[in-house]
Design a protein around this nucleic acid. Sequence first.
DNA 1: GTATAGTGGGACATAATATGTCACACCGGG
DNA 2: CCCGGTGTGACATATTATGTCCCACTATAC
Lengths: 339, 339
Amino acid sequence: MEPLVEALKKLSPDLLDVMQKRYEILHSISLMAPIGRRALAASLGMSERVLRSETEFLKGQNLLSADVSGMRLTEEGHELLHTLHDWMREALGLKELEAALQRKLGIPRAIVVAGDSDRSPWVKKEMGRACVACMKELLEPGDIVAVAGGTTMAAVAEMMTPDAKLRDVLFVPARGGLGEDVENQANTICAKMAEKAMGRYRLLHVPDQLSDEAHASLVEEPAVKEVLELIQSCRMVVHGIGDAVTMAKRRKTPPAEMGNIIARHAVAEAFGYYFNEYGDVVHKVKTVGIQLEHLPHVEHVIAVAGGASKAKAIRAYMKRAPHSLLVTDEGAAKAFVGE
Amino acid sequence: MEPLVEALKKLSPDLLDVMQKRYEILHSISLMAPIGRRALAASLGMSERVLRSETEFLKGQNLLSADVSGMRLTEEGHELLHTLHDWMREALGLKELEAALQRKLGIPRAIVVAGDSDRSPWVKKEMGRACVACMKELLEPGDIVAVAGGTTMAAVAEMMTPDAKLRDVLFVPARGGLGEDVENQANTICAKMAEKAMGRYRLLHVPDQLSDEAHASLVEEPAVKEVLELIQSCRMVVHGIGDAVTMAKRRKTPPAEMGNIIARHAVAEAFGYYFNEYGDVVHKVKTVGIQLEHLPHVEHVIAVAGGASKAKAIRAYMKRAPHSLLVTDEGAAKAFVGE
DNA sequence: GTATAGTGGGACATAATATGTCACACCGGG
DNA sequence: CCCGGTGTGACATATTATGTCCCACTATAC
C-alpha cells in the first residue's frame, strides 16, 4: 500500500469506515437506481436514519439526486464512483480480509494488521498493539485476564499500556509450566503485561516435570489453589497459536511424546494443547490452569497469531474456537483466504 | 491535484480539516519538543481540551509520547510527518490560498475552489455551489437577499437548491437596469435563483435609458418604491466582480462614458460601479437600487469572481470592501498571491 | 532545603451531534 | 379509489465532543 494511504489511516483511522460506507451507498444506488431510502437501508443492512444522513450529505455534495421516484447518481457521482473503485479495493484490503476471515472461520471478529510477521519482526508488535486495543475495549474494571505464553504473547505484553479501563484488572497465567524458556513462559509474560498495564497479577508456581502424586498435592496447596480458582473465574483469555512441531521442539518435548505428536499429524498448538488439521486434540501437556473445556464459558477469548507460515495452524485451531476473536496479520490472512 | 484526493475531499470534506489540525500538532511538537499541553494549545490557538483529545488520539496511534517533561514525537511520528509534508502542501493548497487572501485583502473569509474559470467553464459552477453553501450558512428565515447580475451570478443561480434554511427568504435584484443582456440581468438571475431555492422574489422594472424626469417619477411609483425599500432593507448582497473594460463593452456603454472609463483607468466593475486599481470609484451607471454607500450597513456581502484574468479587478474592488466575503477560484487566487 | 511553574491525567457538567422512531404529504399504478 | 412506495419534517434520546476545574507530580530556580 502506498505510504500516503498508510499515513492517512494513521492520522484518521475511521476515515476508511466512512469512505467505505459512502462508497457502498453510491455503489448500491448506481446499481439499483432509482431506489428509495427504506429499500436501500434494508439492502445495505444499515438503519434508515444513518442512511438518510449519508444521502443528505451526498446530495449536498452533488453526487446523487432524489425525486419522488427515488434516488439516483448524478453524472459527478458516477465519475467519482469510477475514480474510487480501484483505490477502495486496495485501501480496504485489510477490511476485506477481516470480513473473509470472519466468514470462513465463523468467528465474531477478526482483526488484521498490515504486514507479515514472518518477514518483518515489527508486525508482531503491531499485532500486539491491536490486541491491546481490543482488550481495552472488552475489559471492565475488576475483570480477571488469563494470559498464555509464547513469543507473540510477549509482544502483546510489550505493547501493553496503562488505561483507566484496566483499573483493578487482575492478570493471571493461563496454565502452569509448559516447558518454555523463561522469557516466553505464561508467568513471565503475565507479570510483564500487568506491570505495563499498572495492574495487579498473581503467578502460578508449578514446576514443569512432576510426579502425579506431587502434582496432586501441590494443587491442594492453598497458595496454588487460590490462584487456580482465580484462573477458573477469569472473564478473558488471551493466547497465541503455534505450529505444532515448532512448539514441541522449542519445549524439548520427550521423544515419546514428540513421536505421538508427529504420528497423529498435529499442526497447531495453543496453551499446551496440540491439534490436528481438523481441530481435534491429539496431545496435551499435563499441567494445571485453564483447560480446553473451560473456554466456552469464558466471555472473551482472544487468539493472537500471525505470519503466513502459521496460516494452517490458525485454521486448525480456530475450527474449535467458534466464539474466539482472532488478531492476525496480512500475511496469515492472505495465505488463509488464498487457500 | 490528483483525482484521488479530489474524490476523498468530495466524499469526506472535513477530512482535510482534521488532517491539517493533526498535522499541525505533530509539526509543532516536533519543533518545540518537549512541550506541554497548555503551552502548545496557546501556540496553536486552540483550546486545551481539544488539543488534549487530539494528543490522546495521537498517543494511541503511537505517534507521540508524553512524560512529565512534556510531549515529543516517537520515531513513527517523525516518519509520518515527513511522509505527509509534501502531500499536505498540495492538499491544503486551497486552504493556504484562502488564508493568504484573507490576510492580503483584510477580509473575514475567502473561499477558494479548485480550477480556473478562465480555462474550465465548470469552475464557475463550482464557485456557484460554494457561494450557495455560504449563503445557506449565513441566511436566516425571513431574510432579504439582493442579487446582482453577470455571468458568474447566473452560475450561482444555476446551482441554487431549496433548503429549510431558505424558508421565507425573499430575493430582490440589487440594482435596476445596467444595460446587460436579459439573461445576465439582475432581474432574470434573481427570479431564477428564487425559483431554484423555492423562495419568493420581487422584481424591479426600470428601463435602462430614462430621462431624469421619467426616472424621478418612476421611483415614486408605489410598486417600484416598495421594491426599492425592500432592497434597502436587505440583509445580504451577492454580486460578481467584472473587468471594467469587458463589462463596459458588454453593456454597449456610450462612447463618451467609455472614454471616461478608460481615461480614468478603471479596472474593476461591480453592480454598476467602476473602480480604478486603488479602489476609487471612477464611474457609475445611474440607476436605482443598492448604492455603494449602503454596503457597509448590510450584514453579509458576498463577492463571487474567478479566473486568473480577474485577479486585478478583484484586488481593486476588494480594497473598498473590507467586510465582504469572497468566493473565488484557484486561478484567481494564485495570480493574486503570486503578485 | 523550599517555592514555583510547568507537566500529564482524572472528573464532571454541558454543548453539540448522531441516531432511532414516528408522522405526514405526495405520487403512480393496480 | 386506495395501497404501497417515495422524500421530508419533527422530536426524544443516545453518544460524543468540549469547557472547566482539580490534583499529584517533578523539574528547576532560588
